[in-house]
Amino acid sequence: MASILLPRILEIGAGTLARLPEVLTTLQSRRPLIVTDRMMVELGYVDRVREVLAPLDIQVEVFADTVPEPTASSITAGVERVREGDYDALIALGGGSPIDSAKAIAVMGRHGGDIRDYAFPRQVNEPALPIIAVPTTAGTGSEATRFTIIADDHSDEKLLCVGASFMPVAALVDFELTLSLPARTTADTGIDAMTHAMEAYVSRKANPYSDQQALAAMRLIGPNLRRAYHDGQDREAREGMMLGATLAGVAFCNSSVALVHGMSRPIGAFFHVPHGLSNAMLLPAVTGYSIPSAGPRYADCARALGFAAATDGDDDANRKLLDALVSINQELQVPTPADFGIDRDHFFQVRHTMAEQALASGSPGNNPRVPDAAEIVTLYESLWA
């Protein structure tokens, strides 16, 4: 049995940003707050939203102080802004970090408290301010998920928050907003989306619905990831990646992520590695560790991604999958932890803490091969091999 959760309104395709006035009218919103970051302001995205909303003749204010890899302190000003204002919706504009920030702001602005009050295993289902997500990257799928990730400033732990309260009411998935993304962001967010689809498919919580979304996502991401990285103006590749990322979000929202994400969050929290990049660092090693417990499933991933032929047996397909994951990291110039600038001694000093935090998130328990803390430590160490 599966319980499916989706945005109430999901607009997909070129130019769907223009549907924003109609969406606000449907939601009877007259005073939305745009939640975004400084880069979206500087690049003109906020002005584009304002231009689209001009015919509605409504007052649109902006909170542009979200940060990459959001923390409890980084969203405090946004929470206070919502609690002091009379906003009736949030327009979450940007990549995963602004959208994740908006989700937490929508809940805490309505209900107060500390972010730890909302952390997993609590299921947060209280009514919150409605969110209209406008993603500008093809990666997190946050526009279609009931999750948000916010770091605790004091412990450097990334907290997973789960529940219907964090699901956007509407999402406008317009691939044209990704055409100017730099190659590095394209790579990191694209591998993040691929990881979502793979983990949703091999997860112990996978179900027939999530399987179909995950396979469809992989069929879009596999042939388009490299193309979008090498040519950001490739509209066909950008469209494939954007739809693939959203479908991957739908897939893992309705199953779960697994060990890669569980191990990725502590790396991001301790060393400020962007989420998609830390996923990319981990994906080959964790996939190799996990294949023995879900060989047929990983082989399906290899075929859906186009890394193996339909006629390949499972062993051959999985060998090609591992080769392809390593090759993609090389081609897309994914740095190792050392190349990123992480201090090896510090990494090894905190590896046991990271392993405990990974387990506490719950995600490793969804993996087809469930590790203990010692095995996670070994996987962390393998990143330096």
Rank of each mutant, 00 (worst) to 15 (best):
M1Q: 05
M1H: 01
A2D: 09
A2W: 06
A2T: 10
I9A: 01
G15P: 08
R19E: 14
L20D: 04
L20S: 09
P21H: 11
L24Y: 08
Q28G: 06
V35C: 03
V35P: 02
M40P: 14
E42V: 14
G44D: 11
G44E: 07
G44Y: 13
D47A: 15
V52D: 10
L53P: 06
D57C: 11
D57I: 05
I58D: 01
D65Y: 14
T66A: 07
T66P: 05
P68N: 09
E69M: 08
A72H: 04
A72D: 14
A72P: 00
A77F: 00
G78Y: 03
V79Q: 00
E80W: 04
R81P: 07
R83T: 01
A92H: 00
G94L: 00
A106I: 04
G109K: 06
G109P: 03
D114V: 12
R116K: 05
Y118D: 05
P121N: 03
N125Q: 10
A128P: 07
L129F: 07
L129E: 08
A133T: 00
E143W: 07
T145F: 06
I150N: 03
A151C: 13
D152L: 01
D152F: 00
L159V: 01
C161E: 09
P168N: 04
V169Y: 06
A170S: 07
A171N: 06
A171I: 06
L172F: 11
E176N: 13
L177Q: 14
T178Q: 11
L179F: 11
L181P: 03
T185E: 10
T186V: 12
M194I: 11
T195H: 06
M198A: 07
A200L: 06
V202W: 07
K205F: 04
D211N: 10
Q212D: 14
A214C: 04
L215P: 09
M218E: 13
R219E: 14
R219I: 13
R227V: 09
H230D: 15
D231F: 10
A237M: 04
M241D: 15
L247K: 14
A248F: 09
A248R: 08
G249V: 13
F252A: 04
N254D: 09
N254I: 07
S256D: 13
A258T: 06
L259Q: 05
V260D: 02
S264I: 10
R265D: 14
R265M: 15
P266C: 06
P266V: 08
G268I: 10
A269L: 13
F270M: 15
V273I: 15
P274K: 05
L277S: 09
L277K: 08
L277N: 12
N279F: 09
A280T: 02
L282N: 10
P284M: 01
A285S: 08
G288F: 03
Y289M: 02
S290D: 14
I291H: 02
P292D: 08
S293H: 12
P296V: 01
R297H: 02
R297A: 13
D300V: 14
F307V: 05
A309E: 15
A309G: 15
D314A: 14
D315W: 07
A317C: 11
R319I: 12
L321I: 01
L321Y: 02
L321F: 02
D323K: 13
D323R: 12
S327C: 10
Q333W: 12
T336R: 01
A338Q: 02
F348Y: 03
F348V: 03
F348N: 03
A355F: 00
G362W: 00
N367S: 14
P371L: 00
A373H: 00
A373K: 03
I376F: 04
L379A: 07
L379R: 03
